[in-house]
Structures are given as C-alpha cells and as structure tokens.
Amino acid sequence: MNHKRIPRIGIGGPVGSGKTMLIEQFVPLLSQKGYKTAIISNDVVSKIDADRMRKNLASERGLLPESLVIGLATGGCPHTAVREDPSMNISVVEEIEAKHNTDLDLIIIESGGDNITTTFSPALADYFIYIIDVSSGDKYPRKRGLGIENCDLLVINKIDIAPYIGADLKVMENDAKVVRKNKPYVFVNCKTGQGVQEVAEHIIKDVLFEEPPKTVINKTA
C-alpha cells in the first residue's frame, strides 16, 4: 500500500431498513461542513440503490462527482462481500484512495440488505453503523444479534410509522440501553431527516476525529 487510508464507514442492516436513505440524508450534512465523500453500494444483483444516490446526490445536487457513487453487484450472501471476503470492496476502495488522496475525507460502504448478524471486516471499514427500523415492532433491539450489539452506532429508523405498528419507542430505547451498554444509538426518520444530524455528529467525532476537511487543510498548507 503506497497510499494513505481514507476513513471508511460501513452501513449494514436488514433489507429495506433505510441504509440508502440514511446515506442520502447525512451526505448533505457532511457536505455542508466541507467534507467530501464517496459511496459504494453493495447489492446482490441490482445496482438501483447506487443509481438512485448518483442521481439524487451527484447529478442533481452536485455534492460529489458521479464517478464516486459506485454500485457493486456481489451475488451470493451479501454479508460475505463485506466480511469474509471483502476483496472486491477493498479493491474498489483502494482505487478510490489512490486517486483521491488529497481531497476525499470519507468513504461510505452500504452492504446488501442482510440478516441481523452482519458485521464489517475491520480490513474494510473502520466504523460500523447498523440500521434497523420499527416496522417489525419493538422486539428489536431486545432480540440482539451481532450487528445490533456490536456496531459502533445503532440507528433505529422510521419512527414516524411506530404508532401504526404499535411499536413502543420507549421500550426500544430501554432495550437499546441494556443491549448496547455504553455504545450509542440514535432514533431517526429518514423521510424527514429527523435525528440524522446526530448521526452526522457521531461520524465527525468518532471517524473523522473532528479534523477539518482535507481540501481545507491542503489549501492552507
């Protein structure tokens, strides 16, 4: 490796829990602060999530170059591509790192929708966000599982629909406290962006170490 590692976060969670929408919500917040990001979106066979983010974040809003939203169709078990054999993702990440050493602050990797035991290989991602939603009721996070317990940040999404499901957010919050010990969790609504600021703050503190954006550092240097 002759290039410097760019901080990387992995985002995992069950199918449809809001991984893509969460990225669509926090990338603009990081962008406002001057942080430049790249996105890799894994899926089993399709690339529609990557296409959607490229359109929403790159083409329409110009928050990042279109070439930095990359879709990866991994086939097979989604978690193998981010944990057991992350070579495909790592080679894409390293290609990005080689080209964007001086301007890129963060690489975001969305895993394919998967079961509750997903984690990211530490060789691939430095920080792991696991996102669940309230649509299956308030039994999660009490049911635990590797992702829910061990991720660096647990995000509980779709709080707007909790009343329709009969999911008690208070119950989920108490369980999250017990299961996660001192590790953080955040309730969000990715449709409106409610709570997402807090997610961005965790990323800035725990992944970016509150350092200024690279383009700012390199300009003054």
Partner: peptide, 12 residues
C-alpha cells in the same frame, strides 16, 4: 475494547 475491535485500524 471488545474482541471484535482488536483489528480496527481507526477508532476513538
């Protein structure tokens, strides 16, 4: 830290 964090390259 936890066992799962023993190989992390970056953490606070």
């Amino acid at each position: 830290i936890t066992r799962l964090e023993t190989q992390k390259l970056r953490m606070r």
